[in-house]
Design a protein around this nucleic acid. Structure first.
Lengths: 362, 362
DNA sequence: CTGTTAGCGCCTTCAA
DNA sequence: TTGAAGGCGCTAACAG
């Protein structure tokens, strides 16, 4: 049955409790702050009873105003659409809970302007610190943070000119690990596919490490060196995506022809795609499936940084990031800063884990 | 180069601005609240300048304390692991932004105790309302909310005894839509697979609607009626999952045998799985893939409520929920309540959309 | 051990 | 048009 939800009656305040318990506000405050040693058992009992009777709950805002700290931290997210973000968020949540912090979540939805506005808003709520999964771009936007402003820790990527703690994947090692895996499995042609990376440090590092690993391959391999390419996939622009995918298609077709030709000599060319993160991998997989059918993996191998749930289902090899831990550590770092720790800015690089699946094995 | 991030200097207060502008706090306050008509252009200019010089930002907490409203709302999430939750969250985020609200996100991670604690915590921050994607369970936990407490709106599921607005999928229609689709495509045996549903209204409704649709099938079909089964999959307990899946396996094998036998008569039995939500569907898909290999869809059809990103990739038919809108509407409802709207508790049931893919077609 | 007092940063009468 | 004073709910000296 539906009845009318009613407006909440005014909540009890510390004054109410004091009156109810027949004492002063100070004693109530002491009780709330656990200073039991300075409260007679008798008074204490009265207070307890009064609190229970009034269902009293101290007002965090008022406490915060007085103490100058409200246990609020901001969490600025670039893109909730990315499973990476959600996983990090879980770590953040857990750590906050453990440390008695309360996260204010803001989703910039890939818009720089939003990022700026939210940062300002957070500042207005006097959060004690912020964890920022920045859009990248320039320091400009993040002015209120780090350095002279609120303590901050960056997640996944660093921002030029911003001196703060940062925690994320060891991108160099991860990209190298993936490239090596592909090389070791005899692929002749490897395409590293990544979103525009001028602005985003983690993408830059991954791409650079990929190229280096390709250059360094020579020694290990008996046969001729595998070719490496970098393809930029701008997921924000459907036309650009289409163009990039077309380029990829041509390469795949060419490899297939070469492969057919070489098949006679038992030396078929093999092509692999190395996706810089899950959104890219998903885009690639969807395209390949549309183009080559359910059996697309027989034609192209796919390896991805990030380990979305569909990877296991489709047998795609991945490099899993310790996302939960990244979020957790970020909060720990921030907490230390809030407590006044004064070390130099720290970088915490966590290793990725290669999860080999059918896709990259033959 | 790493230097030491420094502690933030104290932020300017309204008093600082007043002094800097050579006026009283009252005028500053008026300026902040847009009461421009009562400020001489001259004073106004001075204030503007002072604010800029001091980089002043009003303290929301203090304003909140005074006004009795802080524009904060709580968002209680049962399970961030479920893509549904994240999608709803995006709608919530967007609506909050549009309405000038700030969401405090809390993740109960499927633990009732957490749900209780967070609700209490939110109350302590004096949020003006809460949006609850409840774990289900009983009203007990949600006491501080609805009725006499903070305005609340429920998402996805309602809770017995709690009188509040609620917004979610039209479960009955969705389950019926799915069942009909399966029936229309000639499946002889349909298993509805769902997590324990005694406590969760949405699951209950889906299951009930499935059974009803199965009962009501007779008239439409020329051939003998398809059989319907309900299988409970308790994802929280690995052993139970194993048992349930084993039961399913037996059914699938039996159907296969019958199918072989009937093949001669050109009348093979066909079996379909109807997953009540994405987590269930994922569990099923992973299991089937492990058991029957990449080609598992040739043996069993899968239909799922929820449309995770891997559905398109694997060709699984789904019923997509308008998740973003659900989140958005929830905030709108809540906002109305906060503004004092006093109607009876409303239910907003949004329709799901059937997305037919290869899985359920032959 | 306990209560009184003075603010935290802001808004809101009420006078000027 | 402007400002002074009081108070939101709480904490932190400072007395008693």
């Amino acid at each position: 049955m539906s009845t009318t939800p009613q407006a909440a009656p005014r909540r009890a305040t510390i004054t109410d409790v004091a009156r109810e318990a027949g004492t002063g506000k100070t004693s109530i405050s002491r009780y709330l702050n656990g200073e039991m040693s300075v409260l007679s058992p008798e008074l204490r009992a009265r207070i307890e009873a009064a609190i229970a009777r009034l269902d009293y709950q101290p007002n965090q805002m008022a406490r915060g105003l007085k103490r100058g700290r409200n246990r609020l931290i901001g969490m600025l997210l670039a893109d909730l659409t990315n499973p990476y973000t959600v996983e990090v968020l879980q770590g953040v949540e857990a750590a906050c809970h453990a440390l008695g912090l309360m996260p204010l979540i803001c989703h910039a939805a890939n818009e720089v302007e939003m990022e700026r506005r939210y940062l300002q808003l957070l500042t207005t709520y006097r959060v004690e610190g912020v964890i920022v999964n920045a859009l990248g771009v320039r320091e400009e936007t993040l002015r209120p943070v780090g350095g002279g402003g609120i303590p901050a820790v960056l997640v996944d990527r660093s921002v030029d000119g911003l001196v703060t703690d940062m925690v994320g994947l060891d991108n160099r090692a991860a990209a190298e690990l993936g490239t090596r895996h592909l090389l070791d499995n005899g692929f002749d042609e490897i395409w590293f596919v990544v979103q525009p990376f001028e602005q985003v440090s983690s993408r830059q590092l991954r791409e650079a490490a990929f190229r280096e690993a390709m250059s360094a391959q020579g020694e290990q391999r008996g046969k001729s060196a595998a070719r490496g390419h970098t393809l930029v996939l701008n997921l924000a622009d459907a036309d650009e995506v289409a163009r990039s995918l077309a380029e990829l298609d041509r390469a795949i077709d060419a490899a297939a022809q070469a492969s057919d030709a070489a098949a006679a000599t038992g030396n078929a060319a093999r092509i692999a795609l190395f996706a810089a993160n899950a959104p890219v991998a998903l885009c690639l997989a969807l395209h390949l499936k549309a183009r080559y059918g359910a059996d697309w993996q027989a034609r192209v191998a796919l390896l991805s940084i990030d380990d979305p749930d569909w990877a296991e289902l489709t047998g795609v090899t991945t490099i899993r990031q310790p996302t939960y831990e990244i979020g957790y550590r970020a909060v720990e770092f921030l907490h230390e800063r809030i407590e006044g720790v004064q070390t130099i800015a720290r970088d915490c690089l966590l290793p990725g884990e290669l999860i080999v699946r059918a896709s990259t094995l033959r």
